[in-house]
Design a protein around this nucleic acid. Structure first.
Length: 431
RNA sequence: GCCCCGGUGGUGUAGUGGUCUAUCAUAUGGGUCUGUCGAACCCAUGACCUGGGUUCAAAUCCCAGCCGGGGCGCCA
């Protein structure tokens, strides 16, 4: 049907024959001449409708089409024009492919703001807005940049089950689903499976897949279903995992800086390459800092929102929080040899916001089993997992990035729902 | 789950007891206009979340419900 996207027209000669297809964004009627703005994925173009050359009937029919109707326009490209876009198409033939109803549930280009709620209710229309599309192009590039980096580093992409019997890391609640005659759950993370893959000898694996958390949080940065980018690497320490994460973050930002210039421009965003290495700050140091700022926090506590905002004022870019108390982290974290009160866990932060959690894992069966008990969990529930540690498990480490949260942070979005096509939150499961 | 706050045309809002027969913008319908580009101008259309209660009188006050927003905790 189409010969060019609207963005391709500028590279053509004056007088070229083109067919462009898309949505009618607007029609400015001036009596015997009308200007139709056609939008496709790549931009907009002006189609100039002249009554005299189209004939009364066709002119009336086309210039009265509702906004957001879908058409294809075949005609001659005119580059010497008074249009601000610098070009226009003089149509020979206009195919009306789908007429939109009016009024629209929400405007695409109207000069009124729209609540996020209304936007999500009619998301397909909202997604027609160029600045919204740009967010998702950036998200696409981020996951592609991450994927390409991991592939280059020798990671194998895997897919682990999303329906499980029970027993994940503890901490967050799971969604219960009916599984024939039994109950099953949706996974909160591929953590245990990606570790098992280390025992399988895959050495380096990654997975980009949804994770589900049945937490009743109601914030701008949590979803009940999100895309988790998980990696696990064998014969590696927490330091190796942090270096890999740094590499992935740097490369993915570099990727969007090279591939999403137009999107960054549309969003009026400037994304700087971060300086490497990212600072590594010990938990204890931040604990003292937070307390010195008058926020009460005890050893073993996680950082509260208030604490993180104070820390975020001091450290604005990317930085790691390292050497966490074991009691603040999951059972699978490897304790330090010199002081087992601390574990080889880390968080990657961007200012006050958390992007990633990771750790070197405890690969010693007996010690891992002890830690499960210490967390008040039953090792019997983890037998499928623990078995992998009994017959040859290499030391390993890994991390997980929340794709939407990462995109949110880089695009400076105020709400994680902005960068989620069809978000699943406490109240929303439609559309 | 806890604490605040809110629900007015298709969309976003103003209005905190009585000329509200409800403001403005945008949208939609009609009209004028052959160079618009946030087109302009004229006319029209269209709304008080639901159910109770208080009052002579409720968009406005009270209660309940439903829906939503912000924050916290939890985390990615």
């Amino acid at each position: 049907m189409r010969t060019h996207y609207t963005s391709g027209l500028k590279d053509l000669e004056d007088g070229a024959e083109v067919t462009i297809c898309g949505w009618i964004q607007d029609i400015r009627k001036l009596g015997n001449i009308s200007f139709l703005i056609l939008r496709d994925r790549e931009g907009i173009a002006q189609v100039t409708l002249v009554k005299k050359s189209l004939g009364d009937e066709a002119y009336k029919r086309i210039s009265n089409l509702n906004r957001e109707s879908v058409i294809c326009v075949s005609g001659i490209l005119k580059k010497d024009t008074q249009s601000k876009l610098g070009l226009e198409v003089i149509p020979n033939k206009i195919d009306i492919l789908n007429e939109a109803e009016a009024p629209l549930p929400m405007g695409v280009i109207d000069r009124v703001s729209v609540d996020i709620e209304t936007r999500l209710n009619h998301r397909f229309i909202d997604l027609r807005r160029p600045e919204v599309l740009s967010l998702f192009r950036i998200e696409s590039s981020l996951s592609r940049g991450i994927r390409e980096t991991l592939e280059r580093e020798g990671f194998i992409e895997i897919h682990t089950p999303k329906i499980i019997a029970t027993a994940t890391e503890g901490g967050t609640n799971l969604f219960r689903v009916k599984y024939f005659e039994n109950d099953a759950f949706l996974v909160q993370s591929p953590q245990l499976y990606k570790q098992i893959m280390m025992a399988a000898g895959f050495d380096r694996v990654y997975e980009i897949a949804p994770a589900f958390r049945a937490e009743e949080h109601n914030t701008n940065r949590h979803l009940n279903e999100f895309v988790s980018i998980d990696i696990e690497m064998s014969f590696s320490t927490d330091e190796d995992a942090m270096n890999m994460l740094e590499n992935v973050i740097y490369s993915s930002i570099d990727f969007i800086r090279r591939n999403n210039l137009k999107d960054l421009e549309i969003l009026n965003l400037k994304v700087d390459l971060p300086e490497r290495p990212f600072p590594r700050i010990k938990y204890d140091e931040l604990l003292d800092y937070v307390n010195s700022k008058g926020i009460e926090m005890r050893f073993g506590d996680d950082f509260s929102s208030e604490a993180l905002s104070v820390i975020g004022e001091k450290y604005r870019g990317f930085y790691f929080i390292t050497r966490w108390p074991m009691e603040a982290r999951a059972f699978y974290v490897m304790p330090f040899e010199d002081d087992p009160r601390y574990g080889r866990a880390f968080d990657l932060q961007f200012g006050e916001r958390e992007i990633t959690s990771g750790a070197q894992r405890n690969h010693i069966y007996s010690s891992l089993k002890e830690n499960i008990k210490r967390k008040g969990l039953n090792p019997d529930d983890f037998s499928f997992y623990l078995e992998a540690f009994r017959y040859g498990m290499p030391p390993h480490a890994g991390w997980a990035i929340g794709l939407e949260r990462y995109t949110m942070i880089l695009t400076n979005s105020k709400n994680i729902r902005e960068v989620t096509l069809f978000p699943r939150d406490r109240r929303r499961i439609v559309p």
